[in-house]
Design a protein around this nucleic acid. Structure first.
Lengths: 213, 213
DNA sequence: ATGGTTCTCCATCATCTGATTGAACTTTGG
DNA sequence: CCAAAGTTCAATCAGATGATGGAGAACCAT
């Protein structure tokens, strides 16, 4: 049995894939309740019933979007892990931040959806498995910040969460922040990456026993 | 002419104030589209029409909530500014982070609403003045990180935004993050403050000319 | 008490949204 | 070519939601 999601991921030209991509954008911009399936259908110039035919109800479509993003992000992290494997910590962090930031700037709906899932409930919030937290543990391990997956200190964990959140925030909030700093799109991207590295690399490379109380 | 919002803020026991407080919580948890005025009314055990009588339509109520939060946050920042005035940079940052984090942990709907406004559109997004960006500039000035409000470098600006966002994220995302780090509520709060200071204070006190490229 | 004001709620409406049905059209396989 | 499966859409339905009107209750000043 091949799920609709797998079909869509295998053939990016299929209608299922096109619907999924549009749903990613719409859900990313407006959140679950703010988005309507009519918006998704209109963006593709198809009828609502066609959308139901391919993806079931709204909830199904949303869950497919979440799983799709989980999968993309997971693959991306595996890719980054391969690139930085074996390098010194400082280089690992530099490359990882650069790489992930570039990737998410190209796919802002990922950051949008992650943040919107973090920070607003969905009225009918059933158990939708959201793997980003697990990814964070994987990052910790691949960064060499923890010896095994089961033994990551809360302090390191929180710093990793902060790093990931910082990236997502700068990308999702670009429309809010860029007018403040008065930078064009390209310069904003550069400055964001610089600021991220400036703030977070020392946090990981300095004395691991925090002295701030 | 005294607006409904001013009335509510003056008398916390009034029905208007109670509605506003309930609306803050509901909008904070579910976002604009996810929240219904029925939820707000039910939380107070009143009828929907009573709610309309006091606050007009849903949009009006939401705007009142945003303005209310703007005002609270503004007052809080002024308070912090007074406390830290004249102290060395390191102490200013320490106190500011501690103080703001404590405050926002006690009023998580503020962080929720700020983030939900940052990262998801509202379908009918008219010009709703959202002053948090301006606050950020004020913070920069009060921290002594910029000589005047018009001359804050993008780099410092981005770091301040990152700091504010980090606080909001840890508070709004507590339900997501705390199970990961496996800490009780109180320890989580302590560890978050420690991590925030550990990451951000060096970023402001180290060499201001970033060398990460 | 009384008249006016403020406040509350029940009943109702219009609209939006998600979802279904059945007919028509297209593609596929033999 | 033809039948079956797959696909699309107009029409329609049900329910939720925001909003209004009017009747009655509570309150207040005189």
């Amino acid at each position: 049995m091949v799920s609709a999601l797998e079909k869509a991921r295998r053939d990016p030209e299929s209608i299922k894939a096109k619907i999924l991509a549009a749903a990613r954008r719409i859900f990313g911009v407006y959140g679950y309740h703010g988005a309507t399936i009519k918006m998704v259908a209109q963006e593709l110039g198809i009828d609502i019933s066609t959308l139901h035919y391919h993806w079931g109800d709204k909830r199904d479509l949303y869950e497919a979007v979440v799983l799709d993003i989980n999968e993309d992000l997971s693959q991306k992290l595996v890719g980054v892990e391969k690139v930085i494997h074996g390098l010194p910590l400082r280089d690992r962090l530099t490359i990882a931040i650069d790489d992930m930031t570039d990737y998410l700037f190209d796919h802002p709906e990922i950051s949008n959806l992650i943040l919107s899932r973090y920070f607003s409930k969905t009225r009918e919030d059933a158990g939708l498995d959201f793997k980003v937290p697990e990814f964070t543990v994987d990052i910790a391990r691949s960064m060499g910040l923890a010896k095994d997956r089961k033994n990551v200190s809360p302090h390191v964990m929180l710093m990793l969460l902060a790093l990931m959140n910082a990236i997502h925030c700068f990308i999702s909030g670009e429309n809010f922040f860029r007018p403040i700093v008065v930078l064009n799109k390209e310069t904003y991207k550069t400055q964001v990456k610089q600021a991220l590295k400036f703030m977070h690399i020392p946090a990981f490379t300095q004395d691991a026993n925090p002295t701030y109380t």
